[in-house]
Write a protein that binds this DNA or RNA. Structure first.
Length: 426
RNA sequence: GGGGAGGUGGCUGAGCGGCUGAAAGCACCGGCUUGCUAAGCCGGCGUACCUUUAUAGGUACCGGGGGUUCGAAUCCCCCCCUCUCCGCCA
């Protein structure tokens, strides 16, 4: 949630920043008006309550003194105050309900350095690594779904049979390669990040706290009977971990990584760009999450980006880093860099990691604070990024490492986990 | 699924209709004592919000939500959570 005090105090700037993120200007105005109205009603409510509290004390005093008649007279007075209080409260509750809803559905404010822009077309290319256009000219590349089928790594038909489309079924050497990727990513970040295996289902309040509800409800799998949601990323579980707690500043930054399955409904995404492993309802991912002090978040972001790049680099895949513009930024992010891997068979840059700063947007919702040296508490900052999202990386490896004879070379760093150097043709 | 116990401040833990924002202890901060350490003594110490130039005042908060009452941490109802015994399963 955004800081409402700041919204009111620094209205024009905050509004401009939110509008750049394509938030409806009218709803920002409405939010501000509601905050001011709530303040006014708070004052009124408190005045009534003060009067009531005082009278109640007097009633008690009269009875104690044995002046029953006077006490009874006061009680009648109190009744009038109570009616007035009730009507103010009714109005207040209505205002608060509206306010809360808009507040929960208002996106995070982007950081000042975020490039301005309307859409993905305005994103800024920061760097390209290991990619030469000439390398691909005049050559034909096979899409990963064909390679995987030829080698028997995937069984998409049977996957669809048991679960529907956009569910992958890895088998044999494919399953092994997938597992190798996960082990590689975990080992690579071991020591820097604490490995956590969280539950894959979270409560509604956790899911609201990370910013996924109420806005992203349609994209998540819900287990209504038990009031649980299937996590779309380990971020949800790891970010919710310290909900309601006050952390010791000396323990920050707290770095965690979680290997989980990620569940996404991908509502409305069916059909386009879903061939093979490009877009799935269920995939395996190693996610990195950091909790840090506000002044640490930008430098920790750089480090995390480097950590995420490192796994792609070690897998020897060409990639580029994109600074997302305000218009393309995710709902709860304040700044995001995407890592995209080039997949020559799919002929596309595939997003494999999204490394973001979420400032205090999530900690405010989850009420996660740290104790300040000078006294008092403040909200921590959250960062997260994909240490390794398996399906697209898996796809890119196949497309890059396919040999003339139909075999696929296993990247050097995966061999100790995969147990062989090459995936031979059947 | 059935029975029992319980959810109070950073932590432990009292309170069970008005004198309680909440005893006591620990932790923390300031002062005194002190060769160092340890200890002792005195004082301070919750959060959010509203009004206020400052100072100050007020309101809410004892798992969450309703209710009873002039007045609720305290009584009643519903829900959630934790622990525990039994059952079931592994």
């Amino acid at each position: 949630m955004i800081d409402l005090t700041k919204l009111v105090e620094d209205f024009e700037n905050t509004k401009a920043a939110l509008v750049a993120k394509r938030v409806d200007p009218a709803s920002i105005d409405e939010l501000r008006d509601l905050v001011l109205l709530r303040r006014k009603l708070t004052t009124e409510k408190q005045e009534k309550q003060t009067a009531l509290n005082q009278k109640s004390k007097e009633v008690g005093a009269k009875y104690k003194e044995g002046k029953k008649a006077e006490g009874d007279a006061l009680k009648a007075e109190v009744a009038g105050i109570k009616d007035a209080l009730a009507s103010v409260e009714a109005e207040y509750d209505e205002v608060e309900k509206k306010l809360d809803y808009i507040h929960l559905t208002t996106a995070n404010v982007p950081l000042p350095d975020t490039p301005r822009g309307e859409s993905a077309d305005d994103n800024k290319l920061i760097k390209t690594h290991g990619y030469n256009e000439a390398d691909y000219a005049g050559r034909t590349f096979t899409p990963h779904w064909e390679i995987a089928e030829n080698l028997g790594l995937l069984d998409m038909e049977r996957g669809a049979k048991i679960s529907g489309s956009m569910f992958a079924l890895y088998r044999g050497r494919g399953a092994k390669l997938l597992r190798a990727l996960v082990q590689f990513a975990l080992k690579l970040n071991d020591g820097k990040y604490e490995e956590i295996m969280p539950p894959h289902f979270v409560r509604t309040d956790t899911f609201t706290g990370t910013g996924h509800l109420p806005k992203m409800a349609d994209d998540a799998y819900a287990i209504e009977r038990d009031g649980l949601w299937a996590i779309p990323t380990a971020e949800v579980a790891l970010t919710g971990l310290y909900g309601g707690e006050i952390l010791d500043a000396s323990t920050l930054p707290k770095c965690m990584m979680g290997y989980t399955v990620c569940f996404r409904r991908e509502a409305g995404a069916a059909g386009s760009e879903t061939r093979g492993l490009q877009r799935l309802h269920e995939f395996h991912k190693v996610e990195l999450v950091k909790i840090c002090l506000p002044e640490q978040s930008e430098s920790e972001h750089e480090k995390m980006l480097a950590d995420c790049e490192r796994s792609i680099e070690l897998l020897e895949l060409p990639y580029r880093v994109i600074d997302l513009c305000t218009g393309d930024l995710g709902f709860h992010a304040a700044r995001t860099r995407d890592i995209e891997v080039y997949a020559p068979g799919t002929k596309k840059w595939l997003e494999v990691s999204s490394v973001g700063i979420f400032t205090d947007y999530q900690s405010r919702r989850l009420n996660i604070r740290y104790r300040k040296k000078e006294g008092g508490t403040a909200f921590v900052h959250f960062l997260n990024g994909s240490g390794l999202a398996t399906p697209r990386v898996f796809a890119a490896i196949l497309e890059h490492n396919l040999q003339e004879d139909g075999s696929v070379v296993v990247p050097k760093v995966l061999r100790e986990f995969y147990g062989a150097d090459v995936i031979e043709p059947l």
